[in-house]
């Protein structure tokens, strides 16, 4: 019983981190039809920047905020200077973001070396709490709550604000949104900044759980892709449901069948794709 409770909480924490990564990816995908394959590398860059800030003497919260802003700015620069030239061309966009992912990952390796490093959680969240018989780290509870707060915030932004209405309009029909006065150019950059900033924030928040190491991007990006394939690209609800499904399957897979944890992830993908090729909440991918 204790095993199931504590592993379920671990799965919720991993699912929350995956949501932070996949929701930005999915927002960018839905709006701009760009699969940003540098998203995993930006997640890792956020984790390393946060670690560097903590080591430089900043508090955890300042480090998290500055890493998110820095990664978001980098995302905005990538969108404005590089991705924009390739609008509407799938293969060049895939190659460009993949190339950037390699550059960022190798730059991190060059800067911070190959050893895994632990990002310490903030002092007020260290230690553990007792839930029934299970002892559970306080920080993981915070991750669960924080990711739920991010989900709620994103939902409010997209569904309840004027900016969100513009995003939804542009997702449905960019040409029509432009015609009625939505500045799609600004919107694209803003959403790209937001999505990449979420990845960077996720990296810092995930740092104390996952620790920070050179192939973190290659471990996280496939999981995020699975979340998006499962939930449906461009859908916030899909990213939410998909992230927790993958979080649970991966966490329990690793504990129960460690050799084949990766292969088990395949099963929900087959199940969903055979019923709905566009994912649970998605529209058809063109």
């Amino acid at each position: 019983m204790t095993f199931w409770v504590s592993q379920s909480l671990n799965a919720l924490a991993l699912g929350g981190l995956l949501f932070m990564l996949a929701s930005g990816f999915s927002l960018i995908f839905g709006l701009m039809r760009v699969a940003n394959l540098a998203h995993g590398a930006l997640f890792m860059l956020g984790a390393y920047l946060g670690l560097a800030a903590v080591k430089a003497g900043f508090g955890f919260w300042a480090a998290a905020a500055s890493a998110a802003v820095a990664v978001g700015l980098l995302g905005g620069i990538i969108e404005r200077t590089l991705l924009r030239r390739l609008a509407g061309r799938t293969l060049p966009q895939v190659l460009l973001t993949l190339g950037l992912a390699f550059i960022i990952a190798d730059a991190c390796l060059m800067m911070w070396g190959g050893d895994p490093m632990r990002l310490p959680p903030p002092p007020e969240l260290s230690g553990a709490v007792r839930i029934g018989d299970a002892v559970f780290p306080r920080y993981r509870l915070f991750v669960i709550g924080a990711s739920a707060a991010v989900a709620l915030g994103l939902w409010l932004l997209v569904e309840r604000t004027r900016a969100g209405a513009m995003i939804r309009a542009a997702v449905d029909d960019v040409g029509m949104a432009r015609a009625i006065g939505v500045s799609a150019s600004t919107l694209f950059t803003a959403v790209f900044c937001l999505g990449t900033a979420l990845a960077g924030l996720g990296g810092v928040i995930g740092g104390p759980i996952l620790s920070v190491y050179p192939s973190l991007d290659q471990d996280m990006l496939p999981l995020a892709l699975l979340v998006v394939i499962l939930g449906g690209a461009g859908s916030l609800a899909g990213a939410f449901v998909g992230a927790y499904v993958i979080g649970f399957i991966y966490t329990f897979g690793q504990v129960l069948v460690p050799d084949l944890a990766y292969v088990i992830l395949f099963l929900p993908m087959i199940a969903v794709l055979s019923v709905a090729p566009q994912g649970l909440f998605g529209r058809r991918l063109g």
Binding site: P222, I229, A233, V263, L273, P277, G286
Partner: peptide
């Protein structure tokens, strides 16, 4: 082959990662 375009990119990448993981 249930998808094309970007969906195909993501699914082929995920399939390869799964075999890599094994």
């Amino acid at each position: 082959l249930r998808t094309t375009g970007l969906g195909f990119v993501m699914i082929t990448m995920a399939l390869c990662q799964i075999v890599w993981g094994a």
